[in-house]
Design a protein around this nucleic acid. Structure first.
Lengths: 186, 186
DNA sequence: CTCATTTGAGACAACCATGTCTCAACCCCG
DNA sequence: CGGGGTTGAGACATGGTTGTCTCAAATGAG
């Protein structure tokens, strides 16, 4: 008997591979009947919103950890940098599982999720601001730009792994290095 | 009377905003009837494949220009770097128009388009290799990774502009600078 | 002006996904 | 063993999209 979380997990995996998968396909992937799936989630949209919420929960959790460590780090550039690096690596770990939620149009059209996304982006921007002041990040770039670039590199890594251009285990290093130092020769 | 190219252009604009738009919606956006739209394209898939082809045509065109300039540049690092910068800026200009084609699942599932994408990616990789040898790009990164990172930053810029976090006119500079130098403090 | 061509509007069948419902089979807890 | 609860299979109505077709109106070239 599939737990609600099992259902969400399997649905997430399937929808990551094929965002247009029907409820019937989701049910089959989970290993339950369509009727039972509808007993868990009233509608397809309800399922998608739940997946979006799940992704934001994880993001928030990562931010919680990073903020806590940032507090301990104070204004120490080295430690702040380490906090940021750990945060980005955590994102890379999560990106494969949550990529779907970040691009699906049903989810992106949900007002509550969009609003919460903005709140989290702001919290992230605060971390970035601290890092800028400590001299860890460039000061000539807009605060919010850092988050977008990070997201873009997660997209890049996910696709590169999918195609087979890079090994999964290299993704974190490549993202982090390209994010901080760029791909141009020093 | 809408030209076939007008149709493609309008369809591209609409599908960029809403990738799930129906043929009826496309026809309305173009300003023609559904029947006439079907006279241009047998099926929705045919329309999407045409859009994908159009995007790849543009990409190829940009590569043609870059390769020509790279030939003239020889092994001169400064000139090679300028060629790459111009290429990336051209991508930024195109990204808004062609973003849809790069993410749509129907298009990504088309074998011919995927194959052609690989060919173009290889040509791009050759440019990257030359730049690496000239000391313009880092040598410790996989050849194909550069293309992925560039693509990721295009996604980032597009989204940042859409949200309103950066001004459209700043997109090129931000992408180029973040791509080559990263967002970490020097 | 005339006629061939193109277009729009609408009807149409086919298909697919959604959401609801029923009922029989199953499970497991007592 | 018995019964309450859960599940699967399937039927069902509904709505939306696709692709085809017809026919009348509009268009434009000669």
């Amino acid at each position: 008997m599939a737990d609600r979380d099992d259902v969400l997990g399997a649905a997430q995996r399937l929808l990551n591979a094929d965002p247009t998968a029907s409820m019937a396909a989701v049910a089959e992937a989970v290993g339950i009947s369509r009727a039972t799936l509808h007993r868990h989630f009233d509608s397809r949209e309800a399922l998608l919103v739940e997946l979006g919420t799940r992704s934001l929960d994880r993001w928030e959790q990562r931010l919680d950890e990073a903020e806590e460590q940032a507090l301990e780090a104070g204004e120490d550039p080295g430690r702040l940098r380490a906090v940021l690096e750990e945060l980005v690596l955590a994102y890379v770990d999560d990106s494969d599982a949550f990529a779907f939620a970040l691009t699906d149009h049903v989810i992106l059209a949900n007002a509550a999720l969009v609003e919460r996304t903005q709140v989290l982006a702001d919290r992230e921007a605060a971390l970035v601001a601290a890092a800028q002041e400590a001299g860890v990040l460039r000061r000539d770039l807009p605060l919010r730009w850092f988050g977008h670039v990070t997201y873009g590199l997660l997209v890049a890594a996910r696709e590169a792994v999918r195609i087979g251009d890079i090994a999964p285990r290299d993704a974190g290093r490549l993202v982090l290095s390209s994010l901080l130092a760029g791909v141009g020769a020093p």
